[in-house]
Structure formats: C-alpha cells, structure tokens
C-alpha cells in the first residue's frame, strides 16, 4: 500500500448564517488521507460530518482553510471527487447500464470504452442480471449499488460516501459492507466515508477520524492497529478478532462523552 498523502484537509472551519443565527459547524479540522486508504468520518449526529464531506466534494466552500487533492487545492465539484449519497440517486429514467455509463458520458468517454467499463463495474456490484432494468424495479440496496458502480466507473481519485448504507435494513447493510470490502480489494481506491454506525466504521476503515460535536472539532484519529495487515472479508472474522471489543468500547465511550453535553441543552 503506497503511503503518500492523497488528500489533506487543512484547518477547515465552517459556519453558517450571520450574527445571532450563526452556527459554527466545523472548527479547525486538519487531517490527511493516504493513497488507497479508507478514511471513515465518525461522530455524533450533527457534528458536521456531512458538512466536511460536502466541503471535500466541493459542494460547499470552507469559511477558513483548504482541502488539497494530489497537491492541488480543490475549487468546486469535479469528476476527481465522486460522491454517493444516502438518498437513492440512481436516475429513474435510465436503466442500470445507462446509469453506470452516465458519468462517463458526461466526460466524453468513447462508447466502446464506456460499455466495457460499465459492464466491469456492474459485474463488480453483482447487478449483471439487472443491466437493462429501470431503478423502479430495484431494491434500495441495489439502487445504492448502481450509484456506487456509476461513481467508480467514472474513475474518481477519491470516492466520497455520506452514510451510503444508512437507509438500508441490517442484513442488506452488511452485505453491502462486505461488497465494498471486496471492491476495495480488487480496484484500488481512496475512500472517505461518513457513518454513525460504529461496527461499520471499524469494519471498513483503515483510519477513523472522530469529530466532536458543536462545533465539530477533530477529537481523535484512530489507526485500528488491531486489524492492520489482516485480510478481513466478513463481519464474523472482524468481531472475533483480538482487540475488536476494546476498540468498539473505546469508540462507544467517545460517542457517549460527546452526546452528553448535547442532552443537557
């Protein structure tokens, strides 16, 4: 695994509104994401995870600070930073295949290559049989897989995901997590993913960036040493690993510590 810095978040602050209505969402957040690393943003609800991800995507501008991808400061949304949302975004008027080709079409990828790449990524997310199906006939998990394939087929430098499995039921959710692990193994990608599901974070992450709430500040960066160098493919394997319970307990304690002051208000 190459270990050069892919993306760096430098002193990002973000506030909304003015005067009395001013809400400070993020305060001085800095961290790096390495090449091919999966960086999970974790933290209590409302701590600014989505805001930070939107800033990385270029959908929002930081009030102070900058985000640098491959040595270039980002300015607005671009193909290099493809995003998958919690809401289903597979376009209903396009078939699965057309959805996956969509991003490549925007970027003028020639038809032959487009079709080849689309079928590769459709296979990767196990939707081969549904190539010609419209999203209306797909389940929530399948729609999410379309969105993931569409973004990956567009070859982003970093894949951004905001609670991509948040709307799915528990079983579909771990299927999706295992599929994502599989994808990460086969196609090298740098990923930044937001979740508030602790086992999901531990399962997927190489590094967890934990934000505290109101305003969102960097509270801890967790390296997950206990699973370093191990080839974990399913959840049972993870849960039975030495060090997993401690890790989960530590994160839970941090979550609780953050949630408490909020309860008082």
């Amino acid at each position: 695994m190459a270990s050069h810095v892919k993306l760096s978040v430098n002193g990002v602050c973000k506030s909304f509104g003015h005067g009395a209505h001013r809400v400070e969402a993020l305060r001085d957040v800095s961290f790096n994401v390495l090449q091919n690393e999966v960086c999970v943003l974790l933290g209590p609800s409302g701590c600014g995870k989505s805001t930070l991800l939107n800033i990385v995507a270029g959908l929002q501008d930081p009030t102070v600070g900058s985000v640098v991808l491959d040595g270039t400061e980002i300015d607005g949304p671009a193909r290099e930073r493809g995003m998958v949302f919690q809401s289903y975004t597979s376009f209903p008027w396009l078939t699965v295949e057309q959805n996956v080709e969509y991003g490549m079409k925007l970027n003028g990828v020639p038809k032959a290559e487009r079709m080849e790449r689309a079928s590769h990524f459709i296979d990767l997310v196990h939707l081969t049989k549904f190539r010609k199906t419209y999203p209306k006939n797909l389940s929530g998990g399948m729609k999410q897989r379309v969105a993931i394939a569409r973004t990956l087929a567009n070859r982003p430098e970093i894949l951004l995901m905001d609670e991509p499995f948040g709307a799915l039921d528990a079983e579909t959710r771990w299927h999706m997590q295992e599929m994502l692990i599989e994808i990460m193994k086969s196609s090298q990608t740098t990923i930044m993913l937001v979740t508030h599901d602790i086992p999901e974070a531990i399962f997927l992450a190489d590094k967890i960036v934990f934000l505290s709430s109101h305003p969102g500040r960097l509270k801890a960066i967790l390296g997950l040493e206990f699973k370093k160098g191990k080839d974990i493919r399913d959840k049972e394997e993870l849960i039975t690993l030495d060090g997993y319970p401690e890790c989960e307990r530590d994160i839970l304690a941090m979550m609780r510590a953050e949630a408490r002051p909020q309860d008082a208000t």
């Binding site: 995507a57 270029g58 959908l59 949304p77 671009a78 193909r79 930073r81 493809g82 995003m83 998958v84 949302f85 809401s87 975004t89 376009f91 969509y102 991003g103 925007l106 970027n107 969105a147 569409r150 973004t151 567009n154 951004l160």
Partner: peptide, 10 residues
C-alpha cells in the same frame, strides 16, 4: 441529490 450527484460526476 440528483443534481449534486451529477456535478460530482463532472
């Protein structure tokens, strides 16, 4: 999110 998806696809 449809629009946001499209702009982050380039």
């Amino acid at each position: 999110d449809f629009v946001r998806t499209a702009v982050t696809l380039g």
